[in-house]
Each structure stands twice: as structure tokens, then as C-alpha cells.
Nucleic acid binder design. Sequence first.
DNA 1: ATTGGTGCAAATGCTTTGCATAAAG
DNA 2: CTTTATGCAAAGCATTTGCACCAAT
Lengths: 130, 130
Amino acid sequence: MVQVSTKNRNTAQRKLILEQLKSVKTHPTADQIYEMVRKRMPGIGLATIYRNLDHLLENGLVIKLESKGNKARYDGFIDPHCHLICKDCGAVADIDDVQKVTIKSDKLECCGFQPSYEFLEVFGLCKKCK
Amino acid sequence: MVQVSTKNRNTAQRKLILEQLKSVKTHPTADQIYEMVRKRMPGIGLATIYRNLDHLLENGLVIKLESKGNKARYDGFIDPHCHLICKDCGAVADIDDVQKVTIKSDKLECCGFQPSYEFLEVFGLCKKCK
DNA sequence: ATTGGTGCAAATGCTTTGCATAAAG
DNA sequence: CTTTATGCAAAGCATTTGCACCAAT
């Protein structure tokens, strides 16, 4: 259930941030988004990037990946999908067939835990680093 | 393959930190470990906790959980196991039957990604928060 | 007119580092 | 003795916040 805030002003900054994030297939960090956006709106502040990413996150318009103690990464592609994150090089790959993803484990069922498959992050080694 | 450093001095601090971490079944943060250890060695510094946790991590004696942008948590139970982390309350549960855990997905195979099942972290909702 | 948003700079909070001293080998 | 480890304080770094001004509705 996506809760959309009523206090929502469509500022040029917010529109541009979302637009830029949606225009790339990578998973940029806040400061990478800052650099992207700065090219089109030089006066923008980094705090505005953070505040808007938070806002977009709350409204379900972006996904936030907070993995392994590094900088958070953002994803403008919000159809449920999983991420494969390489422990070595940090590369992030998408798995789009979420509905076909399952985790099998006895303990998982017996302790009544409900996994969020939609946003599963699997760490491991990518083809290059294997 | 666990690489054990040759430059390894068995200081009282290091022994105590590992001992305390192994004595609990929780997944304490660095400052929680600091508080635990301080009771037995009041003069110890927080930096020593961090340096030793890093050292122990490199030597494969502890596991580090760096989840969802919060403080890192440490685990003295190093037999391969997975973690179920509640998105709402932050509770961490262990799954011990790692060898029986599998993730099924077409994309996973076709892109040649090798998941690290041993340290898989699954986010979702625990029984209470469901 | 309101009130939410912006830019800036300062503050925060976790973690790391530099340095002089202490202790392990 | 040599080299790693410690404790302290200071620095780093990503992110958040306070505040005065600006702009969307």
C-alpha cells in the first residue's frame, strides 16, 4: 500500500531529481545524483537531494539500497525486483522475476518470518569476481 | 578460506572482547560491546573495540552485520548461518540450516552470480510485526 | 497568505586515524 | 629490542538539521 503525502509540492528540484534517477539504469548514490542534477541546476544543494530522496522514498517513487555499511544507493525502477550485490566490486545487478524467487528453509517457516522478497538483497560474487 | 594474520598479539583486551561477544546470543553493536567489556576493564577505549572487532573479523572469528544503514552489529557465533532481520523492530533471528537454504531464480543462474548463502540477510517482518 | 521547500552551514553519529606510550613476543 | 596494540583526542564521512529566505498552491 503506497501512502502518498498530501503536502507535496512539485518543485523543479524534486521533478528533476526523480527524472534523472529514472533516466539511468544504474543505482547511484546521493552524491552521484547530486552531480547528475547539478549539471542541469547548478545552484542545487546536497541537502535538497537527500530531503527529496527521502520524500520520494516515503511516497514509494524510489527504492533505497542501504547495503553493507557503504553509502546508500537509490533506484528509480520501482517495480518489485531483487538485487544481487557483489561483495568484491560492489556491482549491483537486478533480478526482475521476483514472483519466481523463493527462499527455502525449515527455520524460516517455523519462526513465522515473512520475507520481503520484493526488496531482497543477495550478497555474493559476480561473474567477474568469482 | 580463512586467512589468519601472523601479527597477532593476544592482548587482554582482544581476548575479553571476543569472550564477551561469544557469551551472548544477541547481535550487539560496537558500543554495546564497549559497555559490556567496560564492566570488566573500565579503562578500555572505544577505538580499541573497533580495532579489535576489525581484527577478529579479518581472522574470521566474528561476523559483521552491516544492515540497512544502522550501526553495525557483531556476531560471535561463526558457524555459517543466515539472518532474518525485521524491517520494523530490527530484531535479528538466526537460521542455522544454511545448507538447506536455497534461492531459486532464473536470472540468478543465467548471470553467473554466486550467492553467499552463509551470510545471507533476509529482510522482512517478524512474527510480532506482521 | 500559508506553509512546504530550498540553500547554506553547522551539527550529528558512527567509525577511523594519528600519535605518544605501553606491552607482547 | 622490535613491533603491534592501546587510549585518547581529533578527524572523516555520509547524512541530517536549524534557520532565514523563497516559491508553490
